[in-house]
């Protein structure tokens, strides 16, 4: 039996993949949030951050492909595992869960987050796709405003009077090509209430997903024990909340005018 077989073709191997890719994606989500938060430091900070990212060139593509692969594996394994789970229990119980010792019900019934991982995951994936279309591919039809984000560039030379508030001065030597005006895109994008609402809901789901996933990934890799369980669960819960607050602060900041 080869390594690849043991990883890709067995339940435990796929759980490993879920845990590893999940951990990787969690890392991305954390970094992304930190990047987002630079918006509170003003237009210059976030545009500079974006420009720095873009200046990585080929490395950025490696990172993007890596992320894409992780997402693909994470989803592939998830879909396969949950199809197996469905097959494993084709007949459901009719009796409503009611243990003779009623206090034990919460231990016996699985938590909501754990039962909905595949759904929360798929909705998040759908949102991520939208999010990419919105800000990365800059599809004008979906951003809900009469503007094309493709045009939100930092062009010092022809920045018009009206746009002056959005213009960021790029560091020396980095003027030109990649100077996307991320600040203006974010502000414009989240100025649309339903875009922000979708965003908040998706981020909420992401955090529900993580509240179970962050703890389960330790179990799947065998690091969780009765002694570390409390710590791991607290970490999962805290990290999920922090991410939620961090992410949601951006659209709310835009909507309620905290982002100038």
């Amino acid at each position: 039996m080869s390594l690849a077989h043991n990883i890709f073709n067995t339940s435990l191997g796929r759980k490993y993949l879920m845990a590893l890719t999940g951990a990787g994606l969690f890392g991305f989500v954390v970094m992304h949030m930190l990047g987002n938060l630079t918006i509170f430091a003003g237009p210059a900070a976030i545009n500079e951050y974006a420009a720095n990212l873009h200046s990585l060139g080929p490395l950025l593509w490696v990172a993007r492909l890596g992320l894409l692969a992780m997402v693909a594996i994470h989803i592939w394994a998830a879909v396969k595992l949950s199809a197996e789970n469905k097959r494993a229990r084709q007949v459901r119980y009719e009796g409503a869960v009611q243990p003779v010792d009623e206090d034990r019900k919460s231990e016996i019934v699985s938590r909501y987050a754990s039962r909905t991982m595949i759904y929360s995951g798929l909705i998040i994936a759908a949102f991520a796709f939208y999010h990419l279309a919105h800000y990365t591919w800059k599809v004008p039809q979906i951003n809900g405003v009469d503007a094309d984000f493709e045009e939100f560039y930092v062009h010092e030379e022809d920045a018009g009077e009206e746009q002056v508030a959005f213009v960021t001065v790029l560091p020396e030597g980095k003027e030109g090509a990649n100077g996307a005006d991320v600040y203006r895109m974010v502000k414009t994008g989240f100025g649309v209430w339903w875009v922000s609402a979708f965003y908040v809901v998706a981020v909420g789901l992401l955090c529900v997903h993580l509240s179970h996933g962050l703890s389960a990934m330790f179990q799947s890799r065998g690091f969780k024990t009765k002694s570390t369980e409390k710590l791991i669960n607290r970490f999962a819960c805290t990290a999920s909340w922090l991410l939620f607050i961090g992410y949601v602060s951006v659209p709310l900041g835009v909507l309620f005018g905290f982002v100038k």
């Binding site: 759980k15 494993a88 231990e107 179970h212 703890s215 389960a216």
Partner: peptide, 13 residues
């Protein structure tokens, strides 16, 4: 044809 563990803890309970 058993399913996979999603760490719900029902088994232990």
């Amino acid at each position: 044809g058993f399913g996979n563990c999603t760490v719900t803890g029902s088994c232990e309970a």
